[in-house]
């Protein structure tokens, strides 16, 4: 708990962070930048869980444990994504989504 900061303010911050992530994901064309936006979204949720846990139900640790799992899974997801992007780069020499267009109608 932080003195003088309410849960409303923290959740406003995380919501803004989440939607910055969504905006970045939708507008960027570089796959690495899209992964960074993804990381923003996931981190917003991790903060959300810790803050809600601390402010609303400080006796049960569910939220903090949840955020630990979120961090671990986000790392796994990023590792897998980077591995696949690396393969794509080897085949096409680009990481731009606009060039990734073999599969479409």
């Amino acid at each position: 708990m932080i003195e003088g900061v309410t849960l409303f303010e923290i959740m406003s911050l995380t919501t803004i962070l989440f939607f910055i992530g969504i905006y970045g994901f939708l507008t960027r064309t570089n796959l690495i930048a899209m992964l960074m936006s993804l990381e923003l979204m996931v981190n917003a949720e991790a903060i959300n869980f810790v803050a809600i846990n601390k402010y609303l139900s400080p006796t049960v640790m569910q939220g903090q444990i949840f955020s630990l799992f979120i961090i671990a899974l986000a790392a796994a997801e990023t590792a897998l994504a980077l591995a696949i992007i690396l393969h794509l780069y080897r085949l096409t020499k680009t990481v731009d989504v606009k060039e990734v267009k073999e599969l479409k109608y």
Partner: peptide, 11 residues
């Protein structure tokens, strides 16, 4: 094609 599908799916 397979790698491209993988990229699309994971994103």
């Amino acid at each position: 094609r397979s790698v491209e599908a993988g990229v699309k799916y994971i994103m």
